[in-house]
Design a protein around this nucleic acid. Structure first.
Ligand SMILES: [Zn+2]
Length: 404
DNA sequence: ATAATTTGACCGTCC
DNA sequence: AGGACGGTCAAATTA
C-alpha cells in the first residue's frame, strides 16, 4: 500500500540523465515563454462543510465507463520497474506539473501586489475550489497575460530556484490551488473525493461534463492545495472547448471548473485532434513534492501524457515514447523517471476492463497524430520535431529529443 | 431556481 | 466468506 511515496516523491529532477541537449532548456524556455504554465492561484477558502447524509438506493452504477484506460502508475520514482511500467505505462500518462495553475486576473493582481507576501497568498489561495470567478476566463487570460507573470515566476523559480514558491510555504504561487482550473480545455465536474490509502492526500474524482464523454480524472492535492497527482482516464469524444475568452465555451457554458490541473490550454491546439477525439488517454500528473520541497523547487516531474496534455512547468522535459503501446502516450519526463509502480496499488480493479477498452480506443498513435512523421504534436499544443532518440539507462523506452 | 460541490454510503474487485 | 480499498452514486448543501 503505501509505497508510493517513495516513488512519487520524487520528482525528479531533470536533469540527470539526459543526454544533454540543449533542448532541455529550450524546452523549458519554450514552455515558459510560449506556453506558459498555468499557474494559478486564487482565493481561497477553506471551508468546512457540513456533512450530508444520504440514504441510498442502490444500484446503478454500472455505468462506468469503460472507455477509459487506465493508468496507473504511479509514481515517480525511478525505479526501474520496467515490467510494471510497461504494463502500466502503457496506458498511463503522467504528468508532473510543477507549478501550474491558472490564475485569475484578480489573483494575479493580487499576487502582484502581494508579491512579497507569500503568506498572504497562501492563505488565500488554498482552497478554493473553485467557484469563483475565474472560471471562464482564466484560462485564457492566464495564458496570455497571466501566464507571463507566472511564467516568470515559475520559471524563475524553477530554474533559478524557486524559492518563493515554496518558500512561502506552502505554496503559493506555484501551487495549485484548489481546484481551480487550469483549464485544460475540458470542463470537469467533481463527483467524489476520498482518502486513498496509498496517498497522503485526498483524491478527488472528476468527470468530463460533456454528456457522452467518458473521461474522468483523479486529482490528488496536497494540503496546500498543490496538486500531487493527476490521472486521466479515457478519451474525450469531443473537441476541447476552447476558451474563448469570455465565454464559457463549449459546452456548458457556465464556467466550468476545471479542476485544477492540468494543462494549459491555452493554445489553440493546433491540431490536435483531427477528429476531435482523443484527447487524453490517460495521464498522470504528479507533483508531490512536499516532501522535499526543500530541495528544489520546482516540481519537477514527469509527465507522460498523451495526447493532449500539457506540460508545464518549468522543467525539463524529455519526451519519450514507449513503443509499445499504443502510442498513446508520449511521455514527458521531467525529471527522472518514475514510473512506478507498481503493484502495490490496488488500483487495478477496474483496470482490466479499461485496458481493453483502452486499447481499442487508443491505438493508433499515428493516426492520431497526423504529423507523426517528424513532427509530432504532443499534448502541449505545439508541434515538435524529433531530432534524436536514445535509449536511456533507467528508462526502458527510448527517449526522444524534440525541438519545438 | 439552477448548477456544482460535498461527502457518506454503496458497489465491485482483490486478497 | 469476509475485510480492505478504490471508485462511484446521489442526497444534501452551497454558490
Ligand atoms: Zn470530454
Amino acid at each position: 500500500m503505501e509505497i508510493n511515496e517513495a516513488g512519487k516523491i520524487v520528482i525528479a529532477r531533470p536533469v540527470a540523465s539526459r543526454p544533454a541537449f540543449s533542448g532541455f532548456r529550450s524546452f523549458t524556455e519554450l514552455l515558459c515563454t510560449t506556453s506558459s504554465p498555468n499557474a494559478l492561484s486564487k482565493t481561497a477558502v477553506a471551508a468546512i462543510k457540513p456533512r450530508t447524509v444520504r440514504f441510498k438506493p442502490a444500484g446503478n452504477q454500472n455505468l462506468v465507463e469503460m472507455d477509459s484506460f487506465e493508468a496507473e502508475l504511479s509514481g515517480s520514482e525511478d525505479s526501474s520497474a520496467s515490467d510494471d511500467i510497461l504494463k502500466s505505462k502503457i496506458t498511463a500518462n503522467v504528468i508532473y506539473k510543477p507549478i501550474a495553475k491558472l490564475v485569475s486576473k484578480t489573483t494575479i493582481s493580487v499576487l502582484a501586489n502581494l508579491g512579497r507576501d507569500n503568506l498572504a497568498c497562501l492563505q488565500k489561495i488554498p482552497e478554493v475550489e473553485a467557484q469563483s470567478n475565474n472560471q471562464g476566463n482564466s484560462p485564457l487570460d492566464l495564458t496570455s497575460e497571466s501566464c507571463q507573470n507566472f511564467t516568470s515566476q515559475s520559471e524563475a523559480k524553477g530554474t533559478a530556484t524557486q524559492e518563493n514558491s515554496r518558500a512561502g510555504k506552502n505554496s503559493v504561487l506555484l501551487t495549485t490551488d484548489g481546484d481551480r482550473p487550469s483549464y485544460d480545455g475540458y470542463n470537469w465536474r467533481k463527483y467524489g473525493q476520498k482518502q486513498v490509502k496509498g496517498s497522503q492526500y485526498p483524491r478527488s474524482y472528476y468527470k468530463c461534463t460533456k454528456p457522452n464523454c467518458p473521461v474522468k480524472k483523479n486529482v490528488e492535492r496536497t494540503l496546500d492545495g498543490q496538486i500531487a497527482e493527476i490521472v486521466y482516464k479515457g478519451v474525450h469524444n469531443h473537441p476541447k472547448s476552447r476558451p474563448s475568452k469570455h465565454t464559457s465555451t463549449d459546452g456548458q457554458g457556465h464556467g466550468f471548473a476545471s479542476d485544477a490541473t492540468s494543462n494549459e490550454m491555452k493554445n489553440p491546439v493546433p491540431s490536435n485532434q483531427p477528429n476531435g477525439r482523443n484527447e487524453c488517454y490517460e495521464g498522470r500528473f504528479d507533483n508531490r513534492n512536499d516532501n522535499e520541497s526543500s530541495g528544489h523547487s520546482t516540481y519537477p516531474g514527469r509527465v507522460l501524457l498523451s495526447k493532449d496534455l500539457m506540460i508545464d512547468g518549468a522543467l525539463n522535459i524529455s519526451v519519450s515514447t514507449p513503443d509499445d503501446s499504443f502510442g498513446i502516450s508520449e511521455e514527458f519526463e521531467v525529471g527522472s523517471k518514475d514510473l512506478e509502480a507498481e503493484g502495490d496499488e490496488p488500483k487495478s480493479k477496474r483496470r482490466k476492463k479499461e485496458h481493453q477498452s483502452i486499447k481499442e480506443g487508443t491505438r493508433d498513435p499515428q493516426t492520431a497524430n497526423p504529423n507523426s512523421a517528424d513532427c509530432e504534436v504532443l499534448g502541449d499544443g505545439y508541434r515538435w520535431r524529433k531530432y534524436g532518440q536514445k535509449v536511456v539507462k533507467g528508462n526502458p523506452y527510448p527517449r526522444l529529443a524534440l525541438i519545438g
